[in-house]
Amino acid sequence: MNVIARTSNLSPYLKATSAAIPNGLRPVAGSGKVQKSKVVVKSDVERLTSYSLSQALPTGQLRARSGITGIGAMQQIRLGHTDIRVPDFSAYRRKDVQDPTTKSRESAESRLTFSYLFTGAAAIAGAYSAKTVVTQFVTSMAASADVLALAKVEIKLDDIPEGKSMVFKWRGKPLFIRHRKADEIAREQSVAVETLRHQQHDNDRVKRPEWLVVIGICTHLGCVPIANAGEFGGYYCPCHGSHYDASGRIRKGPAPLNLEVPPHEFVENMVVVG
């Protein structure tokens, strides 16, 4: 039938075939046409009435017009709402106030507390570190440890007989060490403190009651007093007549203060001064 109805050389072109399930033996005829995306512009209105249809009809001469748009649709228009960038400070904002819709007053307390605590902590830490730094600089001006070690004297107490006051040299100054007798100790202990010019009890001035360690410089004008002399049986300054008792306290005369007790400590039967 086909042979009669259609010329054999045309018949392949008078029908179209497509394989529903490709089997790989007969190649599927590919069109070779690349699908290109089409510009589709939809009509602005759907015309359904006589009036809108008649508006679409052209009445005058058909013309096409275009303006100059050398570089695309170029316009010298600045759009304030898109062109100008509003400065963004959110990098500087706390998390609580990032959201513009929340009230900042609600988070004010917690933010303030944090600010104060943080500032306070920072201030304390700052003050301590400042103190450390300052002390370091100031102490650098003090004497070093070897110098301080040289500034000590050790005195054997066995060499000093009871009732005797001996003189040593300590840091260029005379140092009196007195081995007191029991009655001297009792006498000085019993002195009423309120009667003294420079009120110090004997116990405050000695570490072992039988040993008195004082610097032998009169507190008046710096003379060296004489031991076992004066009205109170202790020291007497010959320059202006200051009388010290057996505890080195001023009892009479112009000196204002007691004889100075240097820092000292006893190690067994030895005293270390300095």
Binding site: L62, A64, R65, S66, G67, I68, Q75, Q76
Partner: peptide, 14 residues
């Protein structure tokens, strides 16, 4: 053309 506030158009008919 924009600076002088002008229009420049090309119009074609047949």
């Amino acid at each position: 053309i924009q600076q002088i506030g002008g229009n420049l158009t090309a119009t074609t008919d047949r």
